[in-house]
Design a protein around this nucleic acid. Structure first.
Length: 689
DNA sequence: GACTTGTCAGGGTG
DNA sequence: CCACCCTGACAAGT
């Protein structure tokens, strides 16, 4: 199927040498700016937040090999090659299916053809006259966030090569920093009592910082695949796509590039953001009708008089791309199902412009229209969203559905049970229970009391003892996103008089996401979500029966293989979820090692919730966090799960089970109780538990 | 350096 | 309580 009509358009700069990227692999050298010093010793300006010798934090979960790819393949096992159910969306494009796991940038520019035809969707054109223009590029605003004047100078941990060309690990690193920063800025703003000097746009603030401080990657602009960005990846802000090089303009919908000097003066389109979302008519997921840009004459905030669009800039680039036949990245903006105010950007892979025409817009002016067709052979992304939408609307039932709601109404949202793999139609029986069962009194903590807030606890309230226990910061943003990891997260509990809608009760309110328990290929049942999950979002707690060490030992000695043990006493590799020190003046003040007052062992074998279905991975997308709150003047620790990064729908959720220190798996094949790990990660330790 | 692009949050209204 | 509209402030790239 090679060699279709399209020539392989390779822009001058796109023919980069992949071996160069390979050479750069020892990522994260600490010396970015000075060439030839890629393996410098610890840089004094870099606060040693991490644990690695070079001071660079082991940023993505657990482990060291620098060649690690962050979501190496949680997907492979979820793949259902056939059938109506779009397979999980996280994987590389790769019509060349060889080694897709390793270097997405390796496969480049194959000729695709044979496009499908379908109906249309279109990008909504919002007409908005932008108003005041202040060109003062001041950075002052008196806040401590953009500190250029004082003390800390940040030196990007990324080498200049890494800034130019990325990979999965770098992309995750950049996104992690962006969002950690953004969350912290939100938190700082929320804390302020006076609403003066409010930073309304934490995303822009965080974006500006990572861009200017060079915590960004894939800065070199290119046609086609962006190394490290996978089809199906989701973004919550335009700046995130800027920072990883997927789509450079911070506002405009069309990214394009004009040939740099090599005689090729034609602009070509690189990527487009379609903000329309789902459109009225039934639409094929591999077709996109896209409107050109411009036409909203808004100069000098004269009331928006619309004008004909001109064949220039992005419009011209799309036109030229039609002739070049080059691949154009498509990002589709979709409305989130859970919070309708939020827009999510889904990277839907590569398309080609097949047709263009002009139309009369509503105001009677000319609008350019472009029809793009998706390059075949790419894993589904937007199609997954469409399928989910149909499941939710009941238009088509979920294939392989075994049970509508395995919680029988215990959770606020149903959790379905799905098997598309084999004939197993039931779970081994257990009792669904949404939280912990302390069967005997654990008076291991001194008695304590909740806060005295009368209504919902307010960020910045210095009198709220629950906030005080969290170090003075409200642990969640106003929309319930965890800001940072805590040694121990203090939530308001039943003892607290504050109202149930207090924002400091996130982990107690049950499952909010539309989850499904599904049969994996080789790892039993697993858990995934129909809804997209953003970084820091609460997923569920680990429910079950609290047992003591004696009971655990009894189980082990009795040869009972309880796969549903959660044990804080295991060894867990540390990982970093915060931003790099120095990006803003204040360094992250939360220690990312847990401090749990007593060893908590939970068995979810007989009693549990959805948490018991989350499988292990050595490269997880979920982390656990101990949460404590009061009940009858006693403190109880719970285990809550949060998303490490943004998680696209239908991606299996996994966390790191840790390893029992009792068994030192000297050679990982020993006859010990450890489980052989099938996570497939390049960082896989080979065993777990 | 001016200009072009629309985004996101917040507040008000229906 | 929500969905929707309006407004203000604004970053990156050409």
């Amino acid at each position: 199927m090679e060699g279709g009509s399209s020539q392989n358009f390779v822009p001058p700069s796109a023919g980069f040498d992949k071996s160069r990227v390979l050479d750069v692999r020892p990522l994260r050298s600490l010396m970015p700016v000075f060439p030839a010093a890629s393996q410098a010793p610890s840089f004094p300006g870099m606060p040693p937040f991490g644990n690695t010798p070079n001071g660079f934090p082991p940023f993505y979960p657990f482990g060291l090999p620098s060649s690690y790819q962050a979501s190496p393949d949680l997907n492979s096992e979820m793949r259902t090659p056939t059938g109506p159910m779009p397979a999980p969306i996280r994987s590389y494009r790769a019509p060349t299916s060889s080694g897709a796991d390793d270097f997405p940038e390796d496969s480049n520019g194959d000729g695709y053809f044979d496009p499908h035809v379908g109906s249309s969707s279109s990008r909504k054109k919002t007409t908005k006259a932008s108003s005041s223009r202040k060109k003062t590029k001041k950075n002052g605003d008196g806040d401590s966030l953009t500190n250029n004047g004082s003390g800390v100078t940040f030196v990007s941990a990324m080498s200049s090569f890494q800034i130019e060309d990325g990979n999965r690990e770098l992309v995750n690193y950049v996104l992690m920093n962006f969002d950690a920063l953004r969350r912290r800025i939100c938190q700082i703003e929320d804390n302020k009592e006076s609403k003066t000097g409010v930073i309304k746009r934490a995303d822009l603030k965080a974006g500006g910082i990572v861009m200017s401080k060079k915590v960004r990657t894939n800065m070199r602009r290119r046609v086609g695949v962006i190394p490290g960005v996978e089809i199906g990846d989701i973004f919550f802000f335009r700046m995130e796509m800027c920072a990883v090089g997927l789509h450079a303009p911070s506002m405009a919908g069309i990214d394009y590039m004009t040939g740099n000097g090599d005689g090729d003066k034609d602009p070509v389109a690189l990527s487009i953001v379609s903000s329309g979302g789902y459109d009225d008519e039934a639409e094929a997921s591999d077709v996109l009708i896209y409107s050109g840009q411009g036409g909203n004459s808004n100069s000098k905030d004269k009331d928006r008089e619309v004008a004909d669009q001109k064949l220039e800039r992005g419009n011209l680039a799309l036109q030229r791309s039609l002739h070049h036949g080059n691949e154009v990245r498509v990002i589709r903006g979709v409305k989130d199902d859970v919070s309708s105010t939020i827009k999510i950007y889904v990277y839907d892979g590569l398309y080609k412009v097949h047709e263009s025409w002009t139309e009369r817009g509503k105001a009677g002016c000319n609008i350019f229209k472009y029809k793009l067709l998706r390059v075949p052979g790419q894993p589904p992304a937007f199609a997954v969203w469409q399928a989910i939408r149909k499941w939710k609307d009941g238009f088509s039932s979920r294939a392989g559905l075994v049970l509508q709601d395995l919680t029988s109404g215990t959770e606020p949202v149903p959790v379905s049970l799905v098997n598309e793999v084999d004939n197993e139609k039931a779970l081994v029986s257990f009792t669904y229970f949404p939280t912990l069962k302390y069967t005997k009194s654990f008076s291991l903590m001194p008695p304590s009391f909740g806060c005295n807030c009368r209504s919902a606890c307010q960020p910045g309230d210095t009198n709220c003892s629950c906030i005080q226990k969290n170090g003075g910061d409200f642990p969640y943003t106003s929309n319930g996103i965890l800001v940072s990891r805590k040694q121990l997260l203090h939530e308001c509990g039943p003892t607290c008089p504050c109202t149930p809608n207090c924002k400091n009760r996130v982990s107690q309110t049950g499952v909010k996401l539309r989850l499904e328990v599904f049969k994996t290929k080789d790892r039993g049942w697993g858990l995934r979500s129909w809804d997209s999950i953003r970084a820091g979002a609460f997923i569920c707690e680990y429910a079950g029966e609290v047992i003591d060490e004696a009971k655990l030992k009894q189980k082990e000695d009795g040869g009972e293989n309880d796969e549903y043990i959660f044990d804080t006493g295991r060894d867990y590799e540390s990982f970093k979820w915060s931003y790099e020190p120095g990006l803003i003046e204040e360094s992250p003040n939360d220690v990312e090692d847990y401090n749990i007052p007593y060893r908590l062992i939970i068995s979810a074998k007989n009693v549990g919730n959805v948490g018991r279905f989350i499988n292990h991975s050595c490269s997880p997308n979920v982390f656990w966090q101990p949460v404590v709150y009061e009940h009858n003047n006693q403190s109880f620790v719970h285990i809550a799960f949060y998303a490490i990064g943004h998680i696209p729908p239908m991606t299996e959720l996994t966390y790191d089970y840790g390893s029992s220190s009792s068994n030192e798996a000297g050679s990982n094949s020993g006859p010990n109780r450890k489980n052989k790990c099938l996570c497939g990660s390049s960082k896989c330790r080979g065993y777990f538990g």
